[in-house]
Design a binder for these strands. Sequence first.
DNA 1: AAGGCGAACAACCGCGATTCG
DNA 2: GCGAATCGCGGTTGTTCGCCT
Length: 302
Amino acid sequence: MEREFERGYVKKGPWSREEDEVLLRHVRKYGPREWSSIRSKGLLPRTGKSCRLRWVNKLRPNLKTGCKFTAEEERLVIELQAQFGNKWAKIATYLAGRTDNDVKNFWSSRRKRLERMLQKPPTLKLQKNKGKTPLTPLLVDKAPPCSSNEVEENLSYPTSYMGNTDVFEMINLPDLIKPNYPQLKNDYLSAVEVEATPLHTVPSFESSSGYNFPLLPDPLMDFPVFPEYQDLVPESFGPNFMEGFEENKCSECVCSQKLETGLLPTLGLEENSQITTSNGLFKDFPNEIFEYFEHNPTPTEQ
DNA sequence: AAGGCGAACAACCGCGATTCG
DNA sequence: GCGAATCGCGGTTGTTCGCCT
């Protein structure tokens, strides 16, 4: 331990509970600033940068640590990323309890998932079910049930296929690029009919540009569980900001619950803001992919 | 039971912007 | 005005954990 305070020694790696406590004491005393003084005063053998990062990402009050992104958060991130690009800090201000690191990691994971899905070898394989798991869980997991008619109506292929590895395995990738819609639909429906019921729709959201973007299914995520954002708060370091510091976890997930009242920044999305393919997640995808997003006609088109 | 693999998360690094003396 | 110190952001890497075979 003495070594940790030798001149020039800088500790790296995971933070210990003791270090967190030292850092918290510093913040309680001086506020979330003067990070470099933590080291210069010999309180911790960590750089100011490291201390700040630890505070921002893990020790700040009101963080949703351990909570997966909800469908609504996912939708927001996609929309905001399309508008702002990789401005994670800015995007994070629209998501209560999320840090830029959270958003960045979430986006990175999502992107990798999508890339992997698109790189799947093109095989036509109707899933062998072995009588265990229904074919559709990934597709329908926890989505609200709907009738077969609704299935027909809601069956927009790109939306359905994009988030569903099972369905991906049923189709040829080239078919996704240049689809034979009737064939795909038949394949899909017959597979569904054979393999599983009930069928639900894939959650998706309509972007302001009129396209339906799929929300990637997450078996652990409840659909739809939307936080009441208007009741949540952007962080603020008022005089009493340290109140609410005690961890208060919800039962379902490890969320810090003590959210103060206040307002989130207004979502300043323009009325007709475009989700373009030149920016962010979808930029590396073939343009043809986007022809498959169901296009909802705008009022002027109708 | 063990190993492989992918997802999620934590933390570091480099760099530009800002602040301060 | 200038240089050093500090801060903040985005990209990247390393680690851990859970699932699957």
